[in-house]
């Protein structure tokens, strides 16, 4: 084709030009995000159906979640989203050091999120508010409170796994940034990582009020 003049190393052989490669990659990522939404969608479904069946129990059980920790985590995750977006912007402007700093910031906030989550979990474990048949807490009077904690642990657990996967990918693009693989012409992997990370944030934005605030 006509782009014979220049075929940079990061342009894969089967694409005609960068625009085609970038657009294809982004489209692929968005389609993948759709699958993530529906994966979590199943869990949101559980939340919806069981909340409709046991409204009093959900109201009662959700009071045992720590709103302060949940709110803090919301702030932490939004901040990490901001630093992620700024990392991409820095690379668009070719500021490599800034990009690395922002990515490190994102990693830091992600870690903080997990630490807070750890404290929440260990408290619940300690109290016997475990999912399903391991549930031993006796403070909740409504029927079947173990289901609320099943929903809570599966939803936040799957979300937590996504945070960990996100941290691995961010570390990877950070290393690649350090190795000078990216430039304002080619920063597609950081951008895609950003999309994934924002989705993790998006899901938390819904999880938080559903579980902590309205139960």
């Amino acid at each position: 084709m006509e782009q014979a003049e220049k075929h940079p190393s990061y342009l894969q052989h089967h694409f005609a030009d960068m625009a085609q490669q970038t657009d294809a990659a982004k489209l692929g990522m968005w389609v993948f995000l759709v699958t993530e939404v529906l994966l979590f969608g199943g869990l949101f479904g559980f939340y919806t159906f069981f909340r409709a069946w046991y409204p009093e129990m959900f109201m009662e059980a959700h009071k045992y979640l720590d709103v302060t920790m949940g709110t803090t985590n919301t702030f932490v995750l939004i901040t990490s989203s901001l630093t992620m977006a700024l990392a991409i912007r820095a690379m668009q402007l070719g500021k490599k050091k800034q990009t690395i700093a922002y990515l490190a910031g994102t990693l830091f906030f992600a870690a903080v999120f997990l630490v807070i989550k750890y404290f929440e979990y260990s408290h619940k474990f300690h109290m016997g508010m475990l999912p399903g048949k391991f549930y031993t807490f006796e403070g909740i009077q409504a029927a079947n409170p173990h289901i609320f904690f099943s929903v809570y642990f599966t939803m936040t657990g799957l979300h937590g796994i996504h945070v960990i996967i996100g941290m691995i990918i961010i570390t990877w693009v950070m290393i690649r940034t350090m190795r000078d693989e990216f430039s304002p012409e080619y920063y597609n992997p950081i951008e895609l990582t950003g999309l994934y990370w924002h989705l993790v944030d998006l899901i938390w934005i819904f999880l938080f009020p559903l579980l902590y605030l309205i139960g």
Partner: peptide, 17 residues
């Protein structure tokens, strides 16, 4: 995917949904 995952969790942990 999520259904089968929950089935696995149901069998191992007994979350009861």
């Amino acid at each position: 995917g999520i259904t089968l995952l929950l089935l696995v969790i149901e069998r191992t942990v007994g979350i009861g949904i």
